[in-house]
Design a protein around this nucleic acid. Structure first.
Lengths: 262, 262
DNA sequence: CGTAGGATTGAATAACGTCAACTGGAGTGG
DNA sequence: CCACTCCAGTTGACGTTATTCAATCCTACG
């Protein structure tokens, strides 16, 4: 149930890909384990994160890319004193992509203990120029970041139905954990109720109420931060645009209201 | 008041930067006008857009980058039959950045007649490997796209106060038009009321009502799609996180509620 | 064992969305 | 040249519902 944070206790600075569980979806997949380790040892750093640690603050220059290896990180901004979560990062995710060549637009802080690999953008860009696979890797992940943000945005635009938003959030989490090799049905929420609210554009109490409402209906079990999805099929019925099949579903719907020649 | 679409009537295919009014913020700024024109003639295409023309559809493979030269384009998805605008592109903007190396997550259609320059991603990436300035240009613009999306997202997360959202939308438009050399106080809305609603996560009627409410208060004048900002200072007071000064304002607010060591 | 902060529940308010009718201008065709 | 049509925009009344304010519970940790 609980993601075993296998890479939690490790040496503090030298970055190596050898024992990294994410290797097959990261740099080693692009240029091979041997070269990745060499390269990372030269230009990369590893850092241990504890809850609350700040990776960077909004407004700061974006020196480097962070790849989350273990744990969870939130991206957030403050608007008039209230926090908004603009992103939730899980192992394998890239953090700070919006600041390749501009100051950070948001801050990032660790939600729990974890590990990040850090690579200066300059070095990465240089390497990307030399090696097409590195460039592909780079653009591939940036592409993903943009897509994920877009999905989040679309969710926020829908009708403010808290149930739908929560379900979408949970299904997304489930899918991501599953992709990481964890259970898709039982997991621990990396966010507090208030943070979930800040992520979905809802009040904390609304999150609470609808979470218990979903439980009462038998869709899932909730106990504090522990979630057990009981009827994934039912949940999927209420989910908005399916993030897992980006193309098909949307195309079919597109023709309903089409902006024809004026 | 009305953006003079200077580059509207042009030959249909060969792309050249020579007479492009956006040259100094585009490829020519990176590698010089001469080389930019050469390069674009080789790998680029130009296309005339008419209202409703679709640049690409969600799910389609993302072959190439589009740089909007004149006109306005909307990025949108369909969720259960209702349209959501995920982006609004104005001259100078890059369209399709989320699909460098993945299928398009959203569709894009012209809102009015305009012109786009189109460059295949593959060619652009190859060139980016050879020429650092091109790479910088590429990453710079992608960075901007991510930042802009992030700002949009944060806006949608705030309290669902239609007034605030509308003001933020209008100020953003104003700033962008200003940056393009048009009037910052008088412009034509590229979106219908319904589309503004789809962009801000509000109902069409709500947009209407609050637009006239703002006018009644003397903040601005509205006549159909024509907008005249009368009291920009007052409007700015109600705006959420200021997009124009990404750093300062947010940093000051950040310390209010900080996630300290647990 | 005690406390602090997160989570939960309750009640009342305010406001956005919905349904529906109406207006006005632009474009079309007689 | 005028009447007609169509659709974007507007306004009104209503119901629903998420937020807000507040109090309480509970869980984790010291």
């Amino acid at each position: 149930m609980e993601p075993r944070s296998r890479a939690a206790r490790m040496s503090a600075t030298a970055a190596s890909c050898v024992h990294c569980p994410l290797a097959d979806d990261c740099l080693p997949a692009a240029i091979g384990l041997r070269r990745a380790t060499q390269l990372l040892a030269r230009i990369g750093r590893r850092r241990l994160l504890r809850r609350g640690d700040v990776l960077f603050r909004a407004g700061a220059p974006g020196h480097d890319l962070h790849v989350l290896r273990a744990g969870a990180v939130k991206g957030f901004v403050f608007d008039d004193g209230v926090e908004h979560l603009t992103a939730l990062y899980l192992p394998g995710d890239w953090i700070g992509t919006s600041a390749i060549r501009s100051p950070h637009a948001k801050s990032a802080a660790a939600l729990e203990t974890g590990v990040v690999c850090t690579i200066p953008w300059g070095r990465l860009e240089r390497q990307a120029r030399r090696e097409p696979p590195v460039q592909r890797w780079l653009h591939d992940r940036i592409s993903r970041a943009l897509t994920r943000t877009g999905a989040h945005l679309a969710l926020l635009q829908g009708p403010r139905d808290p149930e739908v938003r929560l379900i979408a959030f949970l299904l997304d989490l489930s899918a991501r954990y599953h992709a990481l090799g964890y259970s898709a049905t039982e997991f621990r929420l990396p966010l507090s109720r208030a943070e979930i609210g800040a992520y979905l554009g809802l009040a904390e109490e609304t999150v609470c109420r609808n979470l218990t409402a979903l439980a009462r209906r038998g869709w899932l079990d909730v106990a504090g931060r522990l979630v057990r999805m009981r009827d994934t099929a039912a949940l999927r019925t209420f989910a908005p645009l399916d993030t897992r099949s980006p193309g098909a579903a949307m195309d079919a719907r597109e023709d309903v209201r089409r902006n024809r020649r004026a």
